[in-house]
């Protein structure tokens, strides 16, 4: 394995894991449910994509032929992360989780909740 590729793989690995750590810090630190929804859906997805690209380069060099298998996981995660985030947001609205008081436009959340439960005034 040439030095250049080794540097590329190492940088991608460390960069990806730093982004994933930031996502988890956001999950642990941010003040309420809906803000906590932001950090993992974005940061963890990009972080794991970096690590998968690094793995792709590494195995392409090691096995001696083009190895694109990790692209499948990356694409799958990129497609499913927003869907999971949408479902989690819906579940949060349904559960009436607490929001911090500085949240603007809380009537919209109320409206979306009433739409899920038309008979609950």
């Amino acid at each position: 394995m040439s030095v250049f590729l080794e540097v590329v793989v190492s940088v991608l690995l460390v960069f990806g894991s730093i982004i994933m750590l930031i996502g988890s810090i956001g999950l642990a630190k941010l003040p309420d449910y809906f803000t906590r929804l932001h950090a993992p859906t974005k940061a963890s997805t990009l972080g794991v994509a970096c690590i998968l690209v690094a793995s792709m380069i590494f195995f392409s060099v090691q096995l001696g032929h083009v190895n694109l298998k990790e692209v499948l996981i990356t694409m799958f995660l990129l497609i499913t992360a927003p869907v999971a985030a949408h479902m989690l947001g819906k579940a949060g609205l349904h559960y009436k989780v607490k929001m911090i008081d500085s949240t603007k436009n809380q009537h919209l959340a109320k409206k979306a909740y009433l739409q899920q439960h038309p008979d609950d005034k």
Binding site: Y33, R36, L37, P40, G47, E70, L88, A91, G92
Partner: peptide, 26 residues
């Protein structure tokens, strides 16, 4: 503190474990 929070935590945990397994492979 609520159930949806725990679901987000599990969701993030499985993404992180994918990265850990890929690292073990490398």
């Amino acid at each position: 503190p609520t159930t949806p929070d725990r679901i987000i935590a599990v969701d993030t945990m499985y993404i992180n474990s994918i990265a850990l397994i890929i690292l073990l492979g490398i």
